[in-house]
Amino acid sequence: MTNDWLKALTFIVGLAMSLSISAHSQQSVASYAQLDTLARDLSLQFMDATQQLAALPDVERDQRAKQLVNAQLVPHLDLEFSSLKLLGKHVRGLDRQQTAEFTKLIESQLVNMYAQVLIDYKGADVALKTLQTNQGRKFAEAAVEIEKANSERSQLIFKFKQDPQGQWRVYDVVSRQVSQLSVKRQSLVLKISKIGFEQLNHELRQSQRNEI
Score class of each variant (00 low, 15 high):
16 A>Y: 05
174 V>F: 10
19 L>R: 07
24 H>Y: 14
56 L>H: 04
64 R>H: 07
165 Q>H: 11
203 E>G: 13
168 W>F: 12
114 Y>I: 00
177 Q>V: 07
142 A>P: 02
142 A>C: 04
116 Q>C: 00
184 K>M: 10
46 F>H: 05
34 Q>N: 13
185 R>L: 00
103 T>C: 03
91 V>Q: 14
53 L>E: 08
203 E>P: 06
28 S>I: 05
25 S>D: 12
174 V>G: 11
52 Q>C: 06
156 L>H: 03
128 L>K: 06
192 I>L: 02
199 Q>E: 15
23 A>N: 12
76 H>Q: 14
62 D>V: 10
210 N>Q: 14
198 E>L: 12
106 I>C: 03
185 R>N: 01
192 I>C: 02
69 V>P: 05
202 H>P: 01
74 V>R: 06
186 Q>R: 04
35 L>K: 04
85 K>R: 15
116 Q>W: 02
78 D>Q: 06
193 S>Q: 11
166 G>K: 06
100 A>K: 12
135 Q>A: 14
27 Q>G: 03
75 P>E: 09
149 A>H: 06
128 L>Y: 09
57 P>C: 08
154 S>N: 08
78 D>I: 05
140 A>F: 07
120 D>I: 04
185 R>C: 00
37 T>F: 06
207 S>K: 13
153 R>K: 15
4 D>P: 01
129 K>T: 11
141 E>N: 15
62 D>H: 10
26 Q>N: 11
153 R>N: 05
17 M>E: 12
5 W>T: 11
